[in-house]
Simulated scan of single mutants.
Amino acid sequence: MRSSTVLVDLSDAPEGVWRGDELGEAGAATCPSGHPGLDAELPGGGWPLGAMTELLQPDAEAPLWPVLLPSLARAVAERGQPVALIGPPHEPFGPALAAGGLPLEALLWVRADAAPARLWACEQALRCAEVAAVLAWLPQARLGELRRLQLAAARHGALLFVCRPDAVAPSASPARLRLRLQPRPDGQLDVHLLKRRGPPLAHPLPMPGRGTRLGGLLDATRPGRPVAPASTRTLPMGEGGATVVRLDLRRALRQDPAHALARASVAA
């Protein structure tokens, strides 16, 4: 049997037909990222609601908060509900997050070391109507487990970010958006769009690797400055040892604030 090639002209296609050379989901629900250059490249002009956004990093210590903090602060302000942090690599550094617009009382830190506990906690947070967004570190998640999270986010229209190692980039993912965050020697970030509904992005997007208020925060933490006392309240969550840590007051600054601000869980 002789095969034949059929060329279809879509120039006169009706409205609602997506073309592969243009950004899709113009009417999809999104949350602005807070970075105009990035929003211009994201389908719908922002992070998708009701879908997974996957963030790949060379290691868990790489900068992350400068990219996500504006959108998380906006989600909290609009909905008046907390952000769930599932298994962050370090304790959230409250003063830096608050300086970026994310109040400390709006954080729910779920401390879980085992992969099953993190997945369970992430699903429960996605099903909770009292959570504005979920940010989870799931380095060992498998494809089927990620699909479950994608379905949970879709059912409840949640804002979901999943952090994974850069080594999984060649593998398949159900995420609607997939980005690689690559630190540069000058302290900036290169954001690669690995997956989106639209044409590939030829060049990475440059973004700041540190928040604009970092200098002022470092000045405020110099020796001799008074530091607010800190206290925490832990709530057992079940399923493999996951624990919710509610940060009630600002965490006392460490002896080396510059090092603390460079951590992945810090809004540096």
Rank of each mutant, 00 (worst) to 15 (best):
R2A: 09
S3I: 10
S4T: 13
T5G: 01
T5H: 09
L10W: 15
L10S: 04
R19Q: 12
E22Y: 02
E22S: 11
L23D: 02
E25V: 04
A29Q: 14
S33A: 05
G37I: 06
D39M: 05
P43F: 01
G45W: 03
W47N: 06
P48K: 01
G50R: 03
G50L: 03
A51I: 05
A51V: 07
T53R: 09
E54W: 10
E54N: 08
L55E: 10
L56S: 08
D59M: 08
D59C: 13
A60P: 07
W65N: 04
W65K: 06
P66G: 13
P66R: 15
V67H: 11
L72D: 00
A73I: 00
R74I: 00
V76W: 01
R79A: 11
G80D: 02
P82D: 02
A84M: 06
A84W: 04
A84Q: 04
G87D: 09
G87V: 05
G87I: 01
P89Y: 08
P89A: 15
H90T: 13
P95W: 13
P95E: 14
A96Y: 00
A98E: 14
G100H: 11
L102T: 01
P103S: 05
P103D: 02
L107R: 05
W109Y: 10
R111P: 02
A114T: 14
A115N: 08
W120G: 10
A121T: 08
E123D: 15
Q124P: 04
V131Y: 04
A132M: 01
A132D: 00
A136W: 06
Q140N: 12
A141N: 07
R142Q: 15
L146W: 10
L146H: 08
Q150F: 11
L151W: 12
A152W: 06
A153K: 14
A153D: 11
A154V: 09
H156M: 12
G157P: 07
F161M: 13
V162D: 06
C163E: 13
R164F: 07
A169V: 11
P170G: 09
A172F: 07
S173P: 04
L177A: 07
R178S: 04
Q182E: 13
P185Q: 04
G187D: 05
G187A: 02
G187K: 04
Q188C: 10
L189V: 04
H192Y: 11
H192K: 03
H192Q: 12
L193S: 02
K195D: 00
R196T: 00
R197M: 01
P199W: 03
P204V: 11
L205M: 07
M207D: 03
R210K: 12
G211F: 10
G211M: 14
T212V: 15
L214S: 08
L217V: 11
L218W: 05
D219G: 07
A220D: 13
P223M: 12
P223C: 09
P226E: 05
A228I: 03
S231V: 09
T232I: 12
T234R: 15
L235Q: 14
P236C: 09
E239D: 12
E239M: 12
E239W: 09
A242H: 05
T243F: 00
L247K: 08
L253H: 14
D256F: 12
A262M: 13
R263H: 06
A264Q: 04
S265V: 02
S265L: 03
V266L: 08
A267G: 05
